[in-house]
Amino acid sequence: MPVPQSSRRIAVVLFNLGGPDSPEAVRPFLFNLFNDPSIIRVPNPMRFLLASFISGRRAKAAKAIYAELGGKSPLLENTEAQAAALEAALKGLWAGEGMEAKVFIAMRYWHPMSAETAARVKEYAPDLVVLLPLYPQFSTTTTASSARVWDEAAKVVGLTAPTRLVCCYPTQPGFIDASAAVIRPLYEKARNHGKPRVLFSAHGLPEKVVKAGDPYQWQCERTAESIAAALCIEDLDWVNCYQSRVGPMKWIGPSTDEEIRRAGQDGVPILVVPMAFVSEHSETLVEIEIEYRHLAKEVGVPWFGRVPTVGVEPAFIEGLAKLVRQSVATPKAVCAQNGGQICPAGFSGCPQQAK
């Protein structure tokens, strides 16, 4: 549905994971995570019982992780900074065109969640809602889950404005250029210790999810290839790997910890690039910075560097602003920079192929 010519108000909703805002919030946050049917793919009441059991069992270890961050996740503050930067960028992009944009945040597993945000968006009375995930690569476990819950929340509050989803942007030029920009200075430092190896690390998924048609791994591979090319470093040594494995199931690989061990055997310095995370949180500030750094030292890696997320890097924010503008200008769903489907045939989890 095209935006009416009289339209002036655009509501942009940033999707993100969310994180506990206090030690007391850790267990309910974990329960919300594991009670998601996109994560634990069994029917209720079994899923509810499993979520209760897993969240209780993992709460103590998770609290220890968040204790390293002052007792809470920094994700909301980081996302708020991105929202403010995007709102300013859209104001500049639409200067003189009579367009107004307000950026909202909808977290999946902790506040502000979709039910709260949908009510605020309805009060804003937009002519169009653009759903913009802070997950560059599409997965049924992230973007699809967030979009499903948003649709449910919008119906509950009576939000009827036309809505468009930017489903993914794994090779969007602004995202890729921003990623390359934050890598380069650390790569130069690493060169003082030998020829560096770049580990493009993404959050992992159970292998069965990918085999069921989820395009996440394919898109992660495209992201890694694109950043490697953008670095313009001759004979760059790089690998795409995955972190944060939990549970007994087989996960996609290679795993980041395996690659760190291999780097230790090879005696090469490494840079870990969190290419599927655009905001700092426990997976970057604890798992990579503390746990992987310790592992690297233990296995003899001569130099370890954690590359920061793109955060509010100007190129990344400008790229998001272009995606929003493109989404407003076309009635089609936006996939990456070309506005159309980017996944090859065979990915049933891709929303463009599921129609």
Results as ranks from 00 to 15, higher is better:
residue 295 L to G: 11
residue 354 A to F: 07
residue 220 C to V: 15
residue 288 I to W: 09
residue 65 I to L: 12
residue 290 I to A: 09
residue 353 Q to T: 08
residue 201 S to T: 13
residue 246 V to A: 11
residue 132 L to G: 05
residue 164 R to H: 13
residue 351 P to C: 06
residue 37 P to K: 06
residue 208 K to L: 11
residue 36 D to T: 03
residue 119 A to Y: 02
residue 305 G to K: 00
residue 76 L to A: 05
residue 56 G to H: 10
residue 231 L to V: 01
residue 79 T to G: 05
residue 135 Y to I: 10
residue 168 C to I: 00
residue 114 S to M: 10
residue 133 P to Q: 14
residue 12 V to S: 08
residue 23 P to W: 11
residue 316 F to S: 06
residue 173 P to I: 00
residue 307 V to S: 04
residue 27 R to Q: 15
residue 191 R to L: 12
residue 205 L to Q: 15
residue 58 R to A: 01
residue 350 C to D: 11
residue 13 V to R: 05
residue 311 G to C: 09
residue 206 P to C: 11
residue 205 L to F: 13
residue 95 A to S: 10
residue 342 I to G: 03
residue 73 S to W: 00
residue 252 I to K: 09
residue 148 R to C: 09
residue 114 S to E: 13
residue 72 K to P: 00
residue 162 P to F: 08
residue 331 P to R: 01
residue 124 Y to S: 02
residue 28 P to K: 07
residue 73 S to H: 00
residue 289 E to C: 08
residue 195 K to R: 15
residue 50 L to K: 08
residue 127 D to P: 03
residue 299 V to N: 08
residue 177 D to T: 11
residue 155 K to D: 15
residue 85 A to Q: 00
residue 339 G to F: 04
residue 26 V to Y: 11
residue 143 T to P: 10
residue 214 D to A: 09
residue 122 K to W: 07
residue 35 N to S: 12
residue 269 P to G: 06
residue 5 Q to S: 15
residue 218 W to K: 12
residue 338 N to I: 13
residue 72 K to Y: 04
residue 203 H to R: 14
residue 134 L to I: 01
residue 65 I to H: 04
residue 163 T to Q: 14
